[in-house]
Design a protein around this nucleic acid. Structure first.
Lengths: 331, 331
DNA sequence: CTGAAAGCGCTAACAG
DNA sequence: CTGTTAGCGCTTTCAG
């Protein structure tokens, strides 16, 4: 209880100066074994904790890393956060998580918040197509994951093109000829690249791209389901669906089932992300697995290098993806 | 770029004092319309952001709320975080999230971290049975959610007893006589209470409690699945399973299926939490829905009251739960 | 090995 | 309506 202890209190109590206390706490050396013990013991006994604000004000180093994510509720992002958190824990950095709720305005507010908090660096997973320039006025190291804003300096992302390719190829290999691309309507870079992979796979197998097979939706279960139901009613023929994320894939599967079609017999489906639902659903969904651990780890490592003023040669790191074949594409 | 602007810079540039700048920024009144405009414009133009460390050092108010959660990757906790975050956003508080990874030691470290950061208050979802006493040495308002540590002052929790009761009653109503309690092996308070509800439902329906029908496991999919498979091999008869969370329920369903039993025909299953997987799995799982929104909201409101030095009469708030009947308990 | 003292950026009491 | 000033708790330079 009572008031929080300060170094001054300790110094007075022990007949030392704050300088010495500070030295011991940060073990900078230059004090006797005896003083060290005295100080350490006192601290432990009374439960002293340094005042981070004062420290930060003085040193201009907060030892805090900010992370901006579009949706903390999304397992994909939550996993990345966890990895980053674990990584920085060893280096005595704290993580400040900002959930932007897929809202661009809020992202900017969080950006300001992070600057006010004097964070030493930022890992930025943007929900937006373009990131505004606040960051330019302040020279904080930023590493981007997944979404590429126009002026991203350093970007870690999955090999989305390859993912799109593998997903589409899987459908083609399993006999699909008319493959719906059920995609996030936002033209963010991962989606653009997945689409490129889709196109490449079609081309390689001499299947013509048909614009009417491209269905746009917000990236959620409900809207994907509704959109596929609408699409089905247009009577445009199709025998496969490549959805740009797993929740959308699941939505499309449930839509098919409600319409009386069987997955994978009548329609085959591939998703993207490999969130846990994809393996627990019925049928389990064939999907492109992103390596969240690697994504987070690389972002963290890169940011750490930046913080240590090391130079980064690879400003654009791509993490491989893997096709997980499950029941939704069985023959 | 360049160095961060300070109030001093602005004051010099505009021929004012830092006091005036400060007053304008915090709109404390007592300045001319003219100065106000000048200052505000300058700030906007140059992109000044106050230094939170300095402010905090001076005022002893960080405007930060700390949240300690056992697992950020768990949808249940993620949803609560989101609600709390949204709530405090309106009140100009930032949220500092600490993921303890269900690790007691780390919880304590986070506690210290939060104190160092001078957080104004803490919302604490502990993974541990008992919370150590660090918090006692520092008088920070704490609101607990879900898990009750021994000395919790203020606790917000679901009506776990009722949940256990409703879950068990549902199984009994659907004809089950020998109901397995597949429970988290840790004796944390929500689990104890769910168990109490289980016992009450049995008693009310004149079914004897049988210790051999109580199966303990860690609260994850894999271990629950394995434990149920082991249990099945003991040949102890059972026709229903009440699992204390949804992932465990799902694990038990998959175990049953691998063993050749049909859910809900041969065995009926009820889970707890109502995470999204429970509605997307096959079969969809009957479960007890916790009201995460309410839980988070109440915790946030209560903490805010504490911060404003209002007195709390209700130190123990219970949030109702609801039974969601789905396919896993159809007759 | 240790201490004195300045100063990080801000707020608030006081003075005008 | 505005300025002066002290000081929050810490680190660091300089002096001893």
């Amino acid at each position: 209880m009572s008031e929080k202890l300060s170094m001054m209190d300790i110094a007075n109590e022990l007949g030392l100066s704050t300088a010495t206390i500070s030295r011991v706490i940060n073990n900078k050396g230059g004090y006797s074994k005896n003083t060290e013990e005295k100080v350490l013991e006192y601290i432990k006994d009374k439960g002293y904790t340094p005042n981070n604000s004062a420290k930060c004000l003085r040193t201009n180093q907060s030892s805090i890393i900010g992370i901006i994510v579009p949706d903390i509720t999304n397992e994909f992002f939550a996993k990345i956060i966890r990895v980053i958190n674990n990584f920085f824990l060893q280096y005595k950095y704290s993580i400040f998580i900002c959930d932007s709720n897929e809202d661009g305005e809020r992202e900017e507010k969080h950006m300001i918040e992070l600057i006010e908090k004097n964070v030493d660096g930022i890992i930025y997973i943007s929900g937006q197509t373009e990131v505004r320039s606040i960051s330019e006025k302040h020279s904080i190291p930023i590493v981007y994951i997944d979404r590429r804003p126009d002026k991203a300096e350093i970007l870690i992302q999955s090999d989305n093109e390859m993912g799109g390719y593998l997903a589409t190829k899987e459908l083609i290999d399993k006999g699909c000829k008319r493959i719906v691309l059920l995609r996030d309507e936002r033209a963010v870079s991962p989606i653009r690249n997945r689409r490129k992979g889709y196109l490449r796979a079609l081309k390689e197998h001499d299947i013509n791209y048909m614009a009417e097979l491209e269905v746009l939706t917000t990236p959620y279960y409900e809207s994907a389901k509704d959109k596929m139901t609408d699409f089905y009613r247009t009577k445009i023929e199709f025998d496969g669906i490549f959805a740009t994320n797993d929740m959308m894939a699941l939505g499309s599967i449930h839509s098919m089932e409600e319409l009386g079609l069987k997955v994978p017999m009548d329609v085959k489906v591939v998703g993207f992300d490999n969130i846990s639902i994809s393996s627990f659903s019925n049928p389990p969904i064939t999907t492109i697995a992103q390596d969240m651990d690697k994504l987070g780890e690389l972002a963290a490592e890169t940011l750490l290098k930046l913080l240590n003023k090391e130079t980064i040669q690879e400003k654009n790191i791509t993490v491989p993806v893997v096709l997980n074949v499950r029941k939704s594409t069985y023959r």
